[in-house]
Design a protein around this nucleic acid. Sequence first.
DNA 1: CTGAAAGCGCTTACAG
DNA 2: CTGAAAGCGCTTACAG
Lengths: 334, 334
Amino acid sequence: MNPTIKDVAKKANVSIATVSRVLNNLSGYSDKTKQIVLETIKEMGYQPNAIARGLINKRTETIGVLLPNVSSSFSSGLLHGIEQYAHDHNYSVVICNTDDVGKRTMKYLKVLREKQVDGVIFASEVLQDEYYEALKAMNIPVTLVSSKTSHPSVPYVKVDDRKAAYDAVSYLIRKGHKKIAMISGTKEDVIAGIPRIEGYKQALKDNGLTFRNKNLVYGDFMFDSGCKSMEQLLQNSNDFTAVFAASDEMAIGALSVAIRKGIKVPDRISIIGYDNIKLTEMVVPPLTTVEQPLSQMGAIACEKLISMIETGRVVESSIVEHKIVERQTVKTLT
Amino acid sequence: MNPTIKDVAKKANVSIATVSRVLNNLSGYSDKTKQIVLETIKEMGYQPNAIARGLINKRTETIGVLLPNVSSSFSSGLLHGIEQYAHDHNYSVVICNTDDVGKRTMKYLKVLREKQVDGVIFASEVLQDEYYEALKAMNIPVTLVSSKTSHPSVPYVKVDDRKAAYDAVSYLIRKGHKKIAMISGTKEDVIAGIPRIEGYKQALKDNGLTFRNKNLVYGDFMFDSGCKSMEQLLQNSNDFTAVFAASDEMAIGALSVAIRKGIKVPDRISIIGYDNIKLTEMVVPPLTTVEQPLSQMGAIACEKLISMIETGRVVESSIVEHKIVERQTVKTLT
DNA sequence: CTGAAAGCGCTTACAG
DNA sequence: CTGAAAGCGCTTACAG
C-alpha cells in the first residue's frame, strides 16, 4: 500500500542497502545516487516505517508517562513540560492515566513493556516496590517527577516540600501572623503530606510559636476537601489569622467558604496556597501561593530520562526551586 | 536480553509456531503442550514484543491525538475521555500538543505515520486541507472532537454550538433579562466563534430584542481576554443586565473584573458561561454555564475511531447534548 | 561506491 | 496436533 524501501530501491535501480544508507545519512554512495534516491523518495511519497526500524534498533523513540489524573491542572502542567521536551528531542509520549487508585499501573507497565518504550516517567506517584520490580524487569530507565525514591537508579525531580512549606509559613509569620492554621493534604502521603506538615511545624517552632492540634486539619488536595477543611477549622477554634493550604485547590476551597461566610480575605483571614496552578490568577482575590514550576519539572524529568536512554548512565536527581508568588490573599498585620 | 518466543520455544521443546499459537489462543495444540508452554512462559517472564507483532499485523493498537494545548482545562477534559475509552479497549494513546499555532501539526502527522498509528483524533482543531491530505495519504481513519468538517469520511462529535448559544441566551431572557451582552470567542472561528454569535443574535431576534453592536465584544476564549472584554463592555455602554460568554474562562474573567469593580454578580449583572469546566464550581459565586460533556465527547470520538479501525467502515457524526447547569451567577429579574 | 544476505521477533499459510 | 519456512520492512556487517 504505502511504498516500502524495496519499492523505492527498485524504482531507483539501487539496492535497499543503498536507500537505507542515504535515508540514515551514512556514508557509502556517490552524490549522484544520493540525488536519484532522494528524488524517487519524494516522488513516491515514501516514509520509513518506524516499527520495522524499531525492531532492529531496539529503540522506539517513545516514552511512557504514568500519571494519576490527566485532567487535573497539576498533572497537565507536568505533562505539558514533558511533551514539550520530548517533542523537541524527537520522542513520542504515550500517556497512561493510572486513575487515582493506581490499579491500572501494573497493566500499563505491561503494555509499555510490550510496546517497547524506551523509558518511563512516573508523575506524581509513589514508586511502589511492585512497580519498581516490574520496571527493573523491563530494563529501561525510569524517572520520577514530583515524587521521590531511595532507589539509586531512579532519579527524581521535585521541590523541597519541607522547605517550601517552611518558607510559606515563615512568609506568613514575617507578615505578622502568629496564629496560623494548616490544611494538609493526605495524612499518610510521604511526598506532599508529611513533609509539608513538618515544614509547617518547624517554622512555627523556629519562630517561637506553638503548634496547636486544632489548627491542623487534613484534606486530600482536592477542592472539595479544602472547603470541608476550612469549615472544620472555623468550627474547631476560629482562632487563627492565616491558613496555609498544601495545595492551591484546597486553598481555593478555603477561600470560597470564607467568602461565602462573609469572612473577608485577606482582611480577616489570610490564605496561602501551594502549586501555583493557573487557577490562582482567576479567583478573586488572586491567590498568593508557593510555586512549583510544574512544566519545567516535567521538562527536566524528561531530559533526565532521555539522557539515560541515550547514554545508558544514571543521572542525578534534582531539587528544583520553589518560590513565593505574592498576590492578594495575604495581609500584613501590624 | 528479554526472552523471545524463540527462547521459550527452545526451553519448552516445541516450535515457535506452537508458542505463537497458544499465545494467541489459536487452535492446534494439545492441552498438555499448552500447559507446558504456559508454564515456561511464566517461568521465563516472557512478554511478547508488540513491535514485531505490529510489523506483521500492520496494527500497532495505538492512536494519536492532536490537541492545541494539553494543559488547558478544556483539552484535558477531552483527553481524559479519550484515554479512558482507549485504555478499556486496549489501545494506547500518544499525545501531540500542536501548541496553539498548529505548526507542529504537520510534523506530528509525519511521526504518527512513521510510527504506524492505527488512527488519529483531532481535538478541538479545524481540519485544514493540508492536514486532510496528509491523513489521506496515511490511509488511516480520523475523527474530530469539538470540531467539524464536511469531508464525509471523517466523522466528528460536537455540541450544536449555535443551538447551545441560543439556549443560553434564551435562558437569560426567560429569567427576565432584556439587555444581554456577549463576549464572543475568536471572531473568525468557524466552530466556536461564529455559530455561537449566530445563536446569540437569533435568540435576541426570536424574542423581539434588538441586537446592539456595542454589546458584542471579542476575546479569544482565554481568561485574560475575558477580563479585557468585560472592561470594554462596561466602557461601551454599561447598558446590559446579563452577559453570555462563549467560554467559561472568559466568563470567569468577566466575573472577576465585575467583582473587582464592586459590581455585584448576579445582583447587578448576571453571567452565563460555556463549557462547564471544573473551575466553574470553584469560583465565588459558582458559575452558571452551558455544559459540553467534554470527557464523554472524547470517549465517543475514540469509540468512533476504534470502530472505524476495526471494521473499516466510516461511522456517522454525532451531535451531543448540551445542557444548562444552573449555579449562582444568573439572577431572575422581575 | 554498491549489493547480497542475515537477522530483528513475531505470524501464518503450508505440509505432514 | 506440530514444525519448517517465508515474510513483515527495515539495518548492518561482509564482500567486492
